[in-house]
């Protein structure tokens, strides 16, 4: 095989390794920030990896009420998230397999992952599972218009819904990419990220009270490897949403030419962006209390207004140089 085929494939594998590895780290970083702000030391940064390794070695217990759906759901949900990895430029532009799909495909894959988990949550017939499923799908439905509007707001000036095309425009424009509409779109996206990844004030990933759970309530019946996949999937989803934010809001640092040095630099820059982004989100979380469930529409409505504002503002000031 020629270098033209092998090169992108190697790069893609590298990206997969990076995203899979960084997901759990993001989760533990968030916990660490919260612990520190509460005066605790918190668990070691590598704890999630140990947890995953332990869980992956364990067998599983399935409720005798459940069906084949329960057994397949974690793998399918994880696969949907993995399939979304090539849609985002992590290291180089254009993304090695970026032509597979655009950001609307990404929305579809995230929805598929959510749909399957929500179905499986109903499978065991537990009340908490049903509650989490209903709430998660409800929030997902409210978040979907925000996602599309944000895509339109970012993509409109670039004339494309593809993440690497939008990022490439940003890299080419340099600091001229920054503009008031971009800022509004970024704020809308951050609100969306809070809802999509189940962060405070929408959902508390560290809660132990079943009645306030949203995402966690859906995984209550899972054990062993399946639980590992679901937890890992949460980290993966966080990495995807942050990676997209990094690519759309601060695309600088992505390599535009191939070369080992460029790749290493891009790897360092992207890691910094993800960690920095998550530090910001976690910092935000420590300043917020969990909202009542029925205030979530306020948040999504605000995000819709901001995204629309970004679109409208483009005509007033132009979408960057």
């Amino acid at each position: 095989m020629s270098l033209r085929v092998v090169g992108p494939m190697v790069l893609l594998l590298l990206e997969y390794a990076f995203v899979l590895a960084v997901g759990p780290l993001l989760l533990s970083l968030g916990r660490r920030v919260k612990a520190r702000s509460q005066g605790r030391t918190g668990s070691p940064l590598l704890q999630p990896y140990r947890d995953l390794w332990k869980l992956l070695g364990k067998g599983a217990i399935y409720s005798d009420t459940s069906s084949w759906l329960t057994r397949w759901a974690p793998a399918v949900s994880f696969a949907a998230l993995l399939a979304a990895v090539p849609l985002i430029p992590w290291l180089v532009l254009p993304a090695p397999l970026g032509y597979v799909g655009d950001l609307i495909v990404l929305v579809g894959l995230l929805a598929l992952s959510r749909f399957i988990v929500a179905l499986a949550a109903l499978d065991a017939g537990s009340t908490f599972g049903g509650m989490g499923s209903s709430r998660d799908m409800w929030m997902g439905a409210l978040a979907e218009p925000v996602f599309l509007l944000v895509i339109f707001a970012f993509g409109g000036p670039a004339g494309s819904t593809q993440a690497d095309v939008i990022a490439a425009r940003g890299v080419a424009l340099g600091l001229g990419y920054l503009s008031p509409p971009l800022l509004l779109a970024v704020v809308a996206y951050v609100l969306l990220l809070l809802v999509e990844t189940g962060r405070l004030p929408v959902d508390n990933p560290a809660t132990h009270l079943e009645l306030t759970m949203v995402h966690e309530a859906q995984t209550l019946e899972y054990t062993g490897r399946d639980l590992a996949l679901l937890e890992w999937g949460q980290g993966l989803k966080l990495a995807l949403m942050l990676g997209l934010l990094a690519a759309l809001a601060v695309p600088w640092g992505l390599a535009t030419t191939w070369g080992l040095l460029f790749l290493l630099a891009a790897l360092a820059v992207t890691s910094l962006k993800l960690l920095g982004g998550h530090l910001f989100v976690s910092g935000l979380e420590t300043r917020l209390a969990k909202w009542r469930l029925f205030r979530v529409p306020d948040l999504t409505t605000l995000a819709v207004v901001l995204a629309f504002g970004s679109l409208a503002l483009t005509y007033v000031v132009g979408g960057g140089a």
Partner: peptide
């Protein structure tokens, strides 16, 4: 993996009945 059947856990509630389903 070793797979074992068990009752629905439901956070340690008694085995849920169909009336308790969502």
């Amino acid at each position: 993996p070793q797979v074992a059947p068990g009752p629905t856990w439901d956070c340690g509630m008694d085995r849920p009945t169909p009336r308790m389903e969502y």
